[in-house]
Simulated scan of single mutants.
Amino acid sequence: MSEKKPKRREFLFTATYAIGVVGAGVVAWPLIDQMNPDASVKALASTEVDLSSVKPGNTITIMWRGKPVFIRRRTPDEIAEARAVNVKELIDPESDEERVKNPEWLVMIGVCTHLGCVPLNDKGDYNGWFCPCHGSHYDISGRIRKGPAPTNMEIPKYEFVNANTIKIG
């Protein structure tokens, strides 16, 4: 039996293919890497907010990803009012318990779900928010109660870092 010796031509083909694959990787890497978000976008991905200065019954507005976020420290009466609502009567049925992680704090994106306006705080028929553009009324839990808006105001992903700090995003 004779052993088949590799020929020079086979070696050259294999070396050429290997160099071609490495070259393709070197060319493709910058094209793929440029699709990753840059540092400014990553910085906007989350934000921490100090809540220690917010008094019960007050709302603060912060900007996150270019949108206003309403953070309201609700009073015990407001919490009771939000929880007393019959969910079956709502346009977009969602209980207050589903919308908050801590009953004292309501965190929601402050954009009307009709056409993207910013509703006014402590206005409207339900002591919550009112969008003057087309007349949408939201209650103290940010749920649509009256008007053309189809859904409740959106709740962003958030968590409590400690008793006085919240991380949104």
Rank of each mutant, 00 (worst) to 15 (best):
21 V>E: 10
151 T>D: 12
95 S>W: 02
34 Q>N: 13
144 I>C: 00
8 R>W: 02
12 L>P: 09
94 E>L: 10
62 I>F: 01
101 K>I: 09
161 V>A: 08
82 A>C: 02
139 D>E: 05
59 T>H: 11
54 V>A: 07
161 V>F: 10
1 M>A: 14
118 V>A: 10
59 T>M: 12
58 N>H: 13
4 K>E: 12
151 T>H: 13
151 T>R: 13
36 N>I: 14
18 A>T: 15
130 F>P: 05
134 H>A: 00
58 N>M: 12
137 H>V: 03
21 V>M: 10
25 G>M: 08
41 V>H: 09
130 F>R: 00
32 I>P: 00
79 I>C: 07
40 S>Y: 11
145 R>C: 03
131 C>G: 04
15 A>V: 11
19 I>E: 04
123 K>W: 12
92 D>P: 09
95 S>P: 06
130 F>D: 01
102 N>K: 15
86 N>F: 06
103 P>E: 04
121 N>K: 14
17 Y>I: 15
57 G>L: 03
60 I>D: 01
46 S>Q: 03
23 G>N: 02
45 A>P: 08
42 K>C: 12
135 G>K: 03
101 K>F: 04
76 P>L: 04
84 A>Q: 00
38 D>W: 09
52 S>Y: 03
148 P>G: 05
156 P>T: 06
60 I>A: 04
1 M>R: 14
139 D>G: 03
3 E>D: 14
46 S>H: 07
24 A>P: 07
37 P>V: 01
43 A>V: 01
167 K>S: 00
35 M>F: 14
127 N>W: 04
44 L>V: 13
69 V>W: 02
6 P>S: 12
59 T>A: 11
55 K>H: 13
105 W>Y: 04
160 F>W: 07
103 P>I: 09
12 L>H: 10
48 E>I: 08
27 V>I: 10
28 A>I: 12
137 H>F: 04
40 S>P: 06
78 E>S: 05
168 I>Y: 07
119 P>W: 00
140 I>K: 06
34 Q>V: 13
153 M>N: 01
116 G>W: 06
95 S>D: 07
46 S>Y: 10
152 N>T: 08
59 T>P: 10
40 S>K: 13
22 V>T: 13
152 N>I: 06
50 D>M: 10
137 H>M: 04
4 K>C: 05
147 G>R: 02
40 S>L: 11
116 G>E: 10
60 I>C: 01
32 I>V: 11
93 P>C: 04
25 G>A: 00
6 P>Y: 09
158 Y>E: 07
15 A>T: 11
55 K>A: 14
131 C>T: 00
52 S>P: 05
132 P>H: 00
152 N>Y: 03
96 D>T: 02
162 N>Q: 04
135 G>F: 01
28 A>H: 08
112 C>K: 04
17 Y>T: 15
27 V>K: 06
142 G>P: 06
127 N>A: 11
67 K>Q: 14
153 M>D: 03
157 K>P: 09
84 A>T: 08
54 V>L: 03
47 T>D: 11
18 A>D: 12
42 K>L: 14
156 P>A: 00
111 V>C: 03
42 K>Q: 13
44 L>K: 13
73 R>D: 04
99 R>P: 06
138 Y>L: 01
120 L>T: 14
64 W>S: 07
86 N>K: 07
58 N>D: 15
33 D>M: 12
15 A>H: 08
79 I>A: 03
97 E>D: 15
45 A>T: 12
107 V>I: 13
